[in-house]
Amino acid sequence: MFSAVLLPSVKLVSALAVCVAVSMGLEPNGSAQASRTQTEPPTSPKRRTVARPGAAKTTCVTTNDTLAGQPFGTEPTVGQLLQAGARVISRKSFANVHEKGQTDTILTLQHQGNQFEFYCMPEQRLLRRAVIINFTPAYGQRLRQTLDASTRQNGGSCAKVQIRDTERTNNVSATFSAGKPSVAHVEPYLD
């Protein structure tokens, strides 16, 4: 008696499956309908990338207030860079948003292929941005140590490194080539 009750329900489930397949564009045998045009490209399965053992991680992200806030250790100043042979690339006037009537300057320096941008006010000069491609000067070597420390914190080699502080206001990012930094961007927080 149990099989008599079960048999009609199995037929009902089979019939429902056929109806669903037909409404989705499949024939009962599972093949695509003949109405599908020949010009449609066949769908391909999504590829899954598998990391090779020992390969560098794509991007390593570190949150570290000290490394992000002081990536050079002692930050190079305009005077130090000019004394070391940097040359002025540009000076742009900029209206101070906090002091009415005060005009500040954005000063761009180039030193041994590296570029530094400073926000200059009468009372101080703040690093706004730096792009480092030459790590041989003392500030470049200190930055390399910071990047190496960040890589160690992430447990190995990385193709790209991002270092942030807890408030995500100071940022350092670098791209590595053959295990060494090839270019680094330093962007300290400025209001």
Rank of each mutant, 00 (worst) to 15 (best):
T59I: 05
T39E: 09
P41M: 09
N64D: 15
S93T: 14
P42L: 11
Y139I: 03
T58G: 14
L127G: 14
A34Q: 11
H111P: 00
R48V: 08
A51C: 09
L67I: 01
Q38D: 14
Q83M: 11
G73S: 03
Q110C: 08
N134R: 15
G54A: 13
R91F: 05
P45Q: 10
A55I: 01
T59W: 03
T105W: 06
E27V: 09
S44D: 09
D104H: 10
A56C: 04
A86T: 04
A51V: 06
T63K: 11
Q70K: 12
E27S: 13
A56R: 11
N114H: 05
A138H: 09
Q80H: 10
K46H: 07
C120Y: 05
R52A: 15
P41F: 05
E117W: 03
G30F: 13
H111Y: 12
P137W: 02
K92N: 15
G69E: 02
T108K: 06
T43Y: 13
F116G: 01
L107V: 13
K57V: 04
R52Q: 13
I132N: 00
T66L: 08
T49Q: 11
T63H: 08
S31Q: 09
C120I: 11
R48T: 10
R91I: 14
G25H: 03
I133D: 09
G25W: 00
V50L: 13
H111V: 03
S93R: 15
S31F: 10
R48M: 07
P122L: 06
N96T: 09
T39G: 09
A130W: 01
N64A: 07
A95M: 12
P42D: 09
G54P: 02
F72C: 04
Q83T: 15
G30P: 03
K57C: 03
S93F: 12
V131H: 12
Q83W: 06
Y119C: 03
R87T: 15
A56L: 03
A84F: 02
A86V: 02
F118I: 01
D65E: 14
P53E: 04
V78D: 05
Q83S: 15
Q102L: 09
A138K: 13
C120R: 10
E40R: 11
T43D: 07
A34H: 08
A84D: 00
K100G: 06
N114M: 00
G140H: 03
M121S: 14
R91P: 07
S44A: 11
S31C: 08
E27A: 07
L107S: 14
H111G: 04
Q38T: 11
E99K: 15
G85D: 01
F135Q: 00
P137C: 06
